[in-house]
Structures are given as C-alpha cells and as structure tokens.
C-alpha cells in the first residue's frame, strides 16, 4: 500500500521535473540508474541469501524456538533470528501476531521485531559498500544491544 503512495509521489515529482527541465530530468534518471547498477551485485547476493535463509527458517520453526517460557534465552534466539533474516514488514507483523497467539512472549517478539528492522547481517555487504566495515559493524552491534533494551522495556510495560 505505502509503495503505491511512494510511486504516486515519485511520478508526480518526475512529471514536474520533466516539465521544468528535460535535460536535468535526464541527468537525474541517469544518476538513478548508475546508483542502482552500482549496488546491483551486492543486492543480488543479498536476495540469494534471503532465499536460503527463509527456506530453512519458517514461522513454524521460529515459533518453536521462541515459545512462551523461553525467557532471556528465547530473547537471545529471537534476536539472532531477527538479525540474520530480512522479512518485509507486511509479512513480519502478521507473523509476529501469529507467534504471539501461539504463546510466544511479548519480550521475545519485541526482540525479534526490533532486530528484524534494525540489524541486518544479510544486508551487510551493501551497508559496508557505503559505510565501511567498522561503521557498519558498530551500527549493527549498537542496534542489537538496543533491541535487548527494547525487549526489556516491552517486557515491563506490555
């Protein structure tokens, strides 16, 4: 749904750009293509790794691992799964809701969702390309630690 809004905005801006200056628009599209082509090799690797990962880790497997009384071990496992996988939000949230119904704890789910969104082991090749190795590793490490804090607070509040 939000992707369609995004498309709408992009088409609108692109049209305005064409009307105002054709040459500049061509330059913008050229830059867009170059930037895309530049990360395409890494993007393709990521896509293959996602396939491999998700073929092994399906919701049924995950719910077994982070069940109701799995405690902090469950939080760690949930964070590990969340860190290595990359699932789009519109799949992740219903999955999380399903896991909750099947008895997973809020803490584990919070760790799973937070790492899923903030920590990306599979996407590291792309991140390193832009941010260098050190910054990428540090950012992901902090995001991981932060996700435990989120899990802890959610455990207290919800």
């Amino acid at each position: 749904m939000d992707t369609y809004i995004f498309y709408g905005v992009t088409i609108l801006l692109l049209s305005i750009s064409v009307i105002k200056d054709k040459k500049k628009t061509r330059m913008a599209l050229k830059k867009a293509w170059k930037a895309f082509e530049n990360i395409l090799p890494e993007l393709l690797v990521v896509i293959l790794l996602i396939g491999l990962m998700l073929s092994v880790l399906n919701p049924a497997t995950i719910s077994k691992i982070i069940g109701a009384d799995s405690g902090w071990i469950g939080v760690f496992l949930a964070a590990t799964i969340g860190s290595i996988t990359l699932i789009p939000g519109f799949v992740a949230f219903p999955t999380a809701a399903l896991l909750l119904q099947n008895g997973a704890g809020h803490m584990q789910i919070a760790a799973f969702i937070s790492t899923l969104m903030m920590v990306g082991v599979v996407t590291m090749p792309i991140e390193i390309k832009y941010f260098t190795k050190k910054t990428t590793l540090l950012r992901n490490l902090f995001a991981l630690i932060f996700s435990f804090i989120v899990a802890f607070i959610i455990g207290l509040v919800v």
Partner: peptide, 20 residues
C-alpha cells in the same frame, strides 16, 4: 520481484534530489 517493484521510486527520488 519484490525488489524490482520497490526499488525504482527510491532511486528516481535519489536522482531528482541530487539534481534539483
């Protein structure tokens, strides 16, 4: 398939931002 659907607006906006 999903990537090819999501990615075009991101990069076009990036190009427009850069130029304008």
């Amino acid at each position: 398939k999903e990537m090819l659907f999501i990615v075009p607006p991101v990069f076009i906006l990036l190009g427009l931002l850069d130029v304008w």
